[in-house]
Structures are given as C-alpha cells and as structure tokens.
C-alpha cells in the first residue's frame, strides 16, 4: 500500500514518501501551468472570462470522473455512464415538461441515474464472475435504448420552460455555480478515498480482491455502493448538462465514459486497480479541459486534438516507466 500513485516517478519508496515535490501530482501541476501559458500565447481570446464561460459543458463531465476513479481503483470499469447520462437527461426533460418543479426534476434525474447504477451494481454483485466491462457494455446499450424508446421518433426533446434549468446555470461573478459544486464534490471524494476506512477498502479491493475479502472487507457491498454512486453522479451530470443544452437527444453523453476514464488515467489512477490518487485525476481533468478550450480557440482540427490527447495519454504513462527502467539498468551496471 506504500506506492499509491499509479506513476511512481521513483521506485525508491523512501524518497517517494518525501512528499509532494516528487509526486506525479506535482508534475501535473507544472503541466497545468505550462498548458495555460501555452494557450495564452497561441490565442489572444484565451481569457479567464472566456475559459470560464466555455467550461460548464466540460465541468459537468467531471462529475463522472470522481466515481470513475473509485471504480478504476476497485479494478472495475463502467462504460455505461454515458448512456446513463442520456437516460437521466431524457427522463428529467420529460419530467420538467410534465410540470414538475425544478427541485423535483433534479431529484428525478438523480434517482434515474441511481437506479441505473444500482442495476449495474446488482448484476455485478450477484454474478461476481462477470467482468464489469461486458455487463456495463450491455447495460450501456439497454439504457441508451430505453432513452431512444422514450424519445420516440424525432429522437430529441426540448424543455418547454427553461427558467428552472437556467437558474442552475447561474454564475457568481465569472464563476458558474457548477464550478463550486465540482470543487466541493472533488474535495469530498478525495478525502473519502484518502482518509476514510471506506476509501482504504477501495485500495485494498483493487490491490487484491481475495486478500481484502479475507481481511473482513465486504467486497461486494463496497462494489455495489460504488456503482450506485456512479449512477447517481451520472444523473447529476445529466441535470447540469441539460441546463446547458435545454434538452436531450439520443447522442447526449456519447463518449463521456471514455473522457472520464482518460482523465482518471492521465491523472495517475491505474486502470488495473489499487493505485493512484483522485487529486491527480482532478488536475489532469483541468489540463485536458484547458487544452481543449485553447486549441478550440485557434480552430484546430478536432481530429488533431484527439491525436494529441492520445499521445499525451500514452507518453504520460510511458515516460516515467522508461526513466525508471533506465535508472534500474544504471544501478545494475554500477553494481557490476
């Protein structure tokens, strides 16, 4: 449990524990600053006001990052979150159009997401042999399919009354409400994963599921809770997404699952479980968001942006590994 960061910059654990300055998170912070300077140089429109105005759509995706990080820590994966967002957004739009007050609409959105997450959790904990990927793949098809059925021909619904949702998209000065909610939830999720018994059980299960089981952790209960939370967060994402889109359609939330996984992985959370810290995931999410906004402002081909993200993703993992390997070889040579 000593080397928690997915990217151990150094294999030397004593040095690693020295602190923040030799951690992957520190590298990410530097990278974040560098990306911002870079974006400022390439685009004169890269101002705080513009960035914050462009941000809400990306920020709502961050609600998926937090629980996805937990799921990856467990050694599982959930690719149904995008579809859950689609279903929750659809249901809350219909609820709003049926005349429910905004509070009830938000609750309905959250509950829809929660129900989807609980179904995933239920299947996965009853049939523990099943890999999460295949179960969430089928529920992904099913959730989006149900949304398609609800939406009917036309495939899109718009809000009749946007006042409630517009209120959600409000701002305090330059900052949208969403920004504060993301920060608060980010802190809560980070603290829970780092400082509570529940958080430690995530790491324990991810590192070695049977060892965790025999040390008394209720593995399946933890998995069920985490998948349920994921569903609820997808519902929250859906509600805020609706406040920027004023409606929902069959492509809502397409690809969000991959975005969330990429943010987490880039932030140092191991995709095989048990390693990484959520703080890294949050910083890396902001790096990716700022990069996308900056490159968008110079109208770069989105395919090139994808290629850059792909290279970043692989090299972020590859570079520290290679440096470690080189170091090990040198040590071996020195010993000889």
């Amino acid at each position: 449990m000593a080397g928690r960061s997915g990217r151990t910059i150094s294999t030397d654990r004593k040095r690693y524990t020295k602190g923040f300055f030799s951690s992957w998170e520190f590298v990410l912070v530097i990278l974040f600053v560098a990306i911002n300077i870079f974006c400022k140089i390439i685009s004169q429109n890269y101002t705080a006001a513009n960035v914050l105005r462009e941000m809400p759509k990306y920020l709502s995706e961050m609600f998926l990052l937090f629980p996805m990080a937990y799921i990856l820590l467990l050694g599982d994966i959930d690719i149904s979150v995008g579809a859950t967002v689609c279903l929750s957004a659809t249901v809350s739009c219909f609820a709003s159009n049926a005349g429910f007050p905004i509070g009830a609409v938000v609750l309905i959105g959250l509950l829809t997401g929660l129900a989807c997450g609980m179904l995933n959790g239920l299947i996965l904990t009853v049939f523990t042999e099943l890999p999460a990927m295949i179960v969430t793949l089928s529920t992904m098809i099913i959730y989006r399919g149900i949304a398609e059925i609800i939406l009917g021909s036309g495939g899109s619904v718009s809000l009749n009354d946007v006042s409630g949702f517009s209120a959600l998209a409000g701002m305090v000065g330059l900052f949208p409400y969403l920004f504060f909610l993301v920060l608060i939830l980010g802190v809560v999720f980070t603290i829970v994963s780092a400082k509570t018994p529940f958080g430690r059980s995530l790491y324990a299960i991810g590192s070695n599921r049977s060892a965790a089981f025999y040390s008394g952790i209720k593995v399946q209960r933890v998995r069920f809770i985490v998948f349920s939370i994921t569903g609820a967060m997808a519902g929250l994402c859906a509600v805020f997404l609706t406040s920027t889109l004023f409606g929902a359609n069959t492509t809502t939330g397409n690809g969000f699952e991959m975005d969330a996984i990429a943010m987490a992985v880039f932030g140092g959370i191991s995709a095989v479980g048990g390693k990484g810290r959520l703080a890294g995931g949050i910083i890396s999410a902001f790096i990716i968001i700022c990069l996308r906004i900056g490159l968008g402002e110079i109208n770069m081909n989105p395919q090139v942006i994808l290629i850059i993200l792909g290279i970043l993703l692989i090299s972020a993992v590859l570079a520290p590994n290679i440096s470690t390997k080189i170091k090990e070889k040198k040590q071996v040579l020195a010993r000889k």
């Binding site: 492509t251 809502t252 939330g253 397409n254 989105p302 395919q303």
Partner: peptide, 17 residues
C-alpha cells in the same frame, strides 16, 4: 469530431470567445 449536438455546443462557445 462527431455528429452530436454536444460537440457543436463547445464549438459555438469557442466562436463566441
């Protein structure tokens, strides 16, 4: 990058900037 409204929203926001 994909034929979705989501992707177009980001582009419109960027153009406003």
């Amino acid at each position: 990058e994909a034929a979705t409204a989501d992707a177009q929203v980001s582009m419109i926001q960027s153009l406003i900037s």
